[in-house]
């Protein structure tokens, strides 16, 4: 396990240059991203907003290395990662990126502790060490009491907090949150945003997709996307 904690050295966390994403649609090509260029610095909290179909989720998937761009360059911590093979992508996802999804995406049939241990086990941690680390992460999101509950025994807010604990357990450089409050009521949504804000204060770079302006106010910077292009940015 190489713990690369070098946030100061890489001031520039993400640099996208003219990113294009196109899908074949019958004989045509559907161009979802038409050339996105943006920079995100280490320790930033960025919100990406846009109407549905604007390409913001596609952009998120490319940043998260779940998808590959059709063109353009993607530098993550100074390294080109846009066209890596699947296993290399998985390796970077595993060590540098934590995901928080709208629908929580917890694994079925697993208690909270095991959920959080899973990414550590994929990294090759021993069971014992993973357990300790997972307990720490769950403590950080205020779920120490519920570590032996399965997802169906937890409320939505609690499930999302488990997902956040899972995302931060591997000590990633970036947390990607795709509509993290989308499935939650205002109150619990607020709690989740507080946790993300705290993590940002601890030095995590956070990139969040949302369509709620109220949620976007937690971010330092908001990027608006429409029709596959960046339309405006505001601080």
């Amino acid at each position: 396990m190489e713990e690369e904690v070098l946030p100061d050295k890489f001031k520039l966390m993400i640099r996208l240059t003219n990113i294009i994403k196109a899908y074949p649609l019958g004989k045509e090509r559907l161009i979802v991203l038409k050339g996105i260029s943006l920079k995100i610095e280490s320790g930033e909290f960025v919100a990406i907003m846009g109407p549905s179909g604007s390409g913001k989720s596609t952009l998120m998937n490319i940043v998260g290395l779940l998808d590959t761009p059709s063109g353009g360059s993607y530098l993550l911590e100074g390294k080109e990662v846009g066209n890596l093979n699947e296993n290399a992508q998985a390796e970077i996802r595993s060590r540098r990126i934590g995901f928080v999804f709208q629908s929580f995406n917890l694994l079925p049939r697993m208690d909270a502790l095991r959920q959080v241990m899973q990414p550590l086990l994929y990294q090759g941690w021993s069971r014992h060490k993973a357990e300790t680390k997972a307990q720490e992460s769950l403590h950080l999101v205020g779920l120490s009491e519920r570590i032996s509950h399965n997802p169906n025994e937890l409320s939505g807010g609690q499930q999302q907090r488990v997902a956040i604990a899972r995302a931060i357990a591997t000590n990633p450089a970036i947390i990607l949150a795709d509509e993290p409050t989308g499935a939650l009521d205002t109150q619990t949504g607020h709690e989740v945003m507080d946790i993300l804000t705290n993590l940002n204060k601890l030095g995590k770079t956070i990139v969040m997709v949302t369509h709620e302006p109220r949620v976007a106010t937690f971010a330092h910077r908001t990027i608006h996307i429409q029709d596959g292009l960046i339309r405006s940015e505001e601080n």
């Binding site: 998260g64 699947e86 296993n87 998985a90 060590r95 995901f99 995406n105 994929y122």
Partner: peptide, 16 residues
């Protein structure tokens, strides 16, 4: 399928 997607998102490789 979805479970597989989640596992891959949190770092599972093909081999896993």
């Amino acid at each position: 399928t979805r479970e597989i997607g989640i596992r891959k998102a949190i770092g599972a490789k093909k081999r896993d």
